[in-house]
Design a protein around this nucleic acid. Structure first.
Ligand SMILES: [Zn+2]
Ligand SMILES: [Zn+2]
Ligand SMILES: [Zn+2]
Ligand SMILES: [Zn+2]
Lengths: 158, 158
DNA sequence: TGTATAAATGTTATGTTATAACATATCAAT
DNA sequence: ATTGATATGTTATAACATAACATTTATACA
């Protein structure tokens, strides 16, 4: 599972995600406006899921947005284009760990350090599950809550 | 996938679920009080997910409950004991299709007829997914939204 | 049977998450 | 420059959920 639970060079982790998204926007003709970019940066600060109102507070601190629809619009933009994911179990949002690829992630939520990791193998799996019943999947949510290896081994990691 | 999408004898479907839950409560020393039982009946009326406030409205019509905590308590009781499931993607609740077994369901939400089916194979699957990364799962959410076979074949089925 | 304890219900108030609706501004293309 | 599309600003409210505390009802057992 993901490096995101383990110690890693988070500055370059952030930077690379940001660069990838910037490039993707350029390629696809999407506008990564100041609020949107800052929203992504906020989500990238840790590998934690943030609620829309947490994000809004931070945007407000920066003078970029101060009303709920502004935060929701930025978050929805990021989610629609695969640059962030919504965590249904938490009603919260997390930056995507590989924003280049089109993917349906499985999300791994550690209840100890509260980080959220993602892996990619969800789609095929859903297809397989749905096949028996002839169910045709549009979107698939896979979210596990539990504890990551680091938190089980160590004291705390938040 | 589940008979619940296909035409079936829903009266006996409901009756058997209700009987199963009654027996389970008796065995486990749980109290299926009037609000709780009625809440289950409400969820069993169709195979649809209902929001807490939808349930509350119906409880209120019956004179059984008229304030949010009352509905939430009944719903939480049912969910805690596996007699109903919470649908995270819909912030809604659905009666369990096989309330006898201890299980982690995968939920199948048809965007056309709005019925919700469940299958049971989720748990092992999560374990397998989590194993690579050493993630230890407490609870697993698997929810697919799409269209059921009936709705793809026929005009409408709601 | 009375009394202690726990479980369930009743009630008020409020917290949290999310969107509808409409006005204004900015961008991009002709 | 004009236009049409996209993005932002703003108000108001909808939808979902729980904290906290009072009261009642069930259960256990002295
Ligand atoms: Zn990182
Ligand atoms: Zn992702
Ligand atoms: Zn049925
Ligand atoms: Zn079930």
């Amino acid at each position: 599972m993901q490096n995101v639970f383990a110690p890693h060079d988070h500055a370059s982790c952030t930077q690379s995600a940001l660069t990838t998204v910037e490039r993707a926007c350029a390629e696809r003709g999407l506008r990564l406006t100041p609020v949107r970019k800052r929203t992504l940066e906020i989500l990238l600060e840790g590998h934690h899921a943030l609620g829309a109102y947490d994000v809004l507070q931070k945007l407000s601190d920066d003078g970029l947005a101060d009303k709920p629809p502004m935060a929701y619009r930025a978050l929805n933009f990021l989610v629609e284009h695969g640059f962030a994911h919504r965590v249904e179990r938490l009603n919260a949002y997390v930056a995507c760990a590989h924003p280049d690829a089109d993917h349906t992630p499985a999300l791994w939520i550690c209840s100890d350090c509260h980080k959220v990791a993602e892996t990619a193998q969800a789609a095929e799996l859903g297809q397989r599950l749905g096949q028996d019943g002839g169910f045709s999947i549009n979107t698939l949510t896979i979210e596990a809550e539990g504890s990551c290896q680091q938190c089980r081994g160590e004291s705390s990691n938040d």
